[in-house]
Write a protein that binds this DNA or RNA. Sequence first.
DNA 1: CTAAGATATGAATAACCTTTCATGTTGTGA
DNA 2: TCACAACATGAAAGGTTATTCATATCTTAG
Lengths: 199, 199
Amino acid sequence: MEINVKIPKTRNGKATFKLIVDTAVELFYVQGYHNTSIGNITTNAGIAAGTFYLYFPNKLTLYKYILMEFQHDIRKRIAEKVSLVEGRFEKEKEGIKTFINYAIENPHSYNIIWESLYIDKQLFSDYYQGFAKRYERGLEQSIKDGEMCEVDTELVSWILMGVSNFVGLKVLLKLGTDKGSADQVVDQVMNIIKTGIFK
Amino acid sequence: MEINVKIPKTRNGKATFKLIVDTAVELFYVQGYHNTSIGNITTNAGIAAGTFYLYFPNKLTLYKYILMEFQHDIRKRIAEKVSLVEGRFEKEKEGIKTFINYAIENPHSYNIIWESLYIDKQLFSDYYQGFAKRYERGLEQSIKDGEMCEVDTELVSWILMGVSNFVGLKVLLKLGTDKGSADQVVDQVMNIIKTGIFK
DNA sequence: CTAAGATATGAATAACCTTTCATGTTGTGA
DNA sequence: TCACAACATGAAAGGTTATTCATATCTTAG
């Protein structure tokens, strides 16, 4: 995806650029993309309306820039964490745990990624398809290693995304009475995935 | 939730009301809530701008009305289907199957329900909390009946919602190469939920 | 037939939003 | 110090949108 962002060249420029991005992230989170105007962003950032256009041609481009930052960030973090443990089950567990923890620590990113479905369906579709593809590779390896049953890896990857997204959502919305930390929630989740829920 | 809708009294009025609702459902689905203006709706419906305000005070109220219609519809349909089968496992299976089939047959409703997160967070939260509560009751019964392991029913209900929502999403986005009908996908999903995925 | 309530119209208003641009300021390499 | 590129400003133009309201038409009970 090509993004038409003007990268600033001086320290001052970089600071203003970051100010715009940070302000937008906060506003998108609090009031949503569509309810946030460029005037909103510049006013909250304490800069003039025209300054925005020094760096971004429009709001959508700013949004895409932010989305890509988060995507890169979350994937990098999951890859790092997963590489530190051995065994497919442990890797899956670490991946889900990292995702949920990331969602809790960065509710902004979680919110902004989901919102893409209502900004540009293609962005959303690309994002989850990309995520699924990564999952599939790992799952196929697990099956080869004899650690996992013969399952439809594509379907299972969507199931696992659904599980982690909704458990993250539950924690995020602060719904219900959570017994303990995210790590404990993830342990429970993994037990369920491992053994199933029916007798 | 109180909704400030003026219910029409004559046959003509009812027809116009329905026309507004149907047009809005279609437009919200195709171009999203935020990209749909009231002018859009009235033009597409072939009525005057002012006519809209005979029945709805604003766009948000119309949206809430539509959302409640869909919620009622989907819950009713799941309850009906679930009541026709015996055994907790079969009931869960039927519930998930009905949900996914509903999503496929009514992509409009699926889309509109998710969008609530970006229109009014409370609406979204209420919706899924309500859904979760229903699930929990069923799950508790299953545990009593000895059909299900001792699990955190609240957590499991969110897991099941995540699974069905994302599998529905996958099918909806027409991602990947789906082998067979929704029913077959659901059979696979239920097998996974039943026995877990790890050896 | 007629009065009244229900329904429908669309021009007008006011608010808000994006984007441009002429002008001004700042920082820095030579 | 000076010249120049980078950065910043905010008023103004031009567009879109929500909402109101004076007016008109339809429907039906009596």
